[in-house]
Amino acid sequence: MSTYLSSLAAAALLFGLSTYFGVFVLESLIRRREAQREAQVESASHVRAQGRWLAPTVWILTVFWLALFVGYFIASTTPPNGSLKHFNTRDLPRPAV
């Protein structure tokens, strides 16, 4: 049960972090597009200021692979019949012998 909830929490955290960093990625994307389209940037200083590591493909691919992993984890920790009652019985307290 706790593993299952952890998976859901990981999905929510991934969504939150992705939204947070996406703001910077989108800002960088707009800035770079404006610079390329309108300023035809040439100087070293201006190019360096663009921040290549904030490329949208890096953002989307990273989030996608992490989500894939989280999805795989959720599926592998969900009980086959969909009932959480029998989920991961190893976590349940053992009866006194």
């Binding site: 999905a11 991934l14 969504f15 992705s18 939204t19 947070y20 960093f21 996406g22 703001v23 990625v25 989108l26 989307i60 989030v63 996608f64 692979w65 992490l66 989500a67 894939l68 992993f69 989280v70 999805g71 795989y72 984890f73 959720i74 599926a75 592998s76």
Partner: peptide, 20 residues
């Protein structure tokens, strides 16, 4: 960013569950 993240995370999770 939230919309894009929701789409990417959803597709990633669903695909991950299918693969599992």
């Amino acid at each position: 960013s939230g919309l894009v993240s929701f789409l990417v995370v959803s597709v990633g999770i669903v695909l991950g569950m299918v693969l599992a």
